[in-house]
Amino acid sequence: MKEKTVNELKLGEIGIVNNIIGEEGIKRRLLDLGLIEGTNIKPVLVSPSGDPRAFEFRGSLIAIRKEDAKNIKIK
């Protein structure tokens, strides 16, 4: 079974982060923002062109593009 990513979350739906894969730089930046295993993440905004979306986690609002968000796996 394919793992779910945050891209599959609907607006307002909360997911719990499992792990982040992919390139080191972006992975590190997301970790630095506190996106570790067990973090609640919720997409709340979509940009007018559909991508990126803005996610709420740990009290901040961070815009992430689809290509990067697909590396954020959720439980």
Partner: peptide, 9 residues
């Protein structure tokens, strides 16, 4: 394009 991670304060 590099990653785009931007805080919306």
């Amino acid at each position: 394009p590099s990653s785009f991670v931007l805080e919306l304060p």
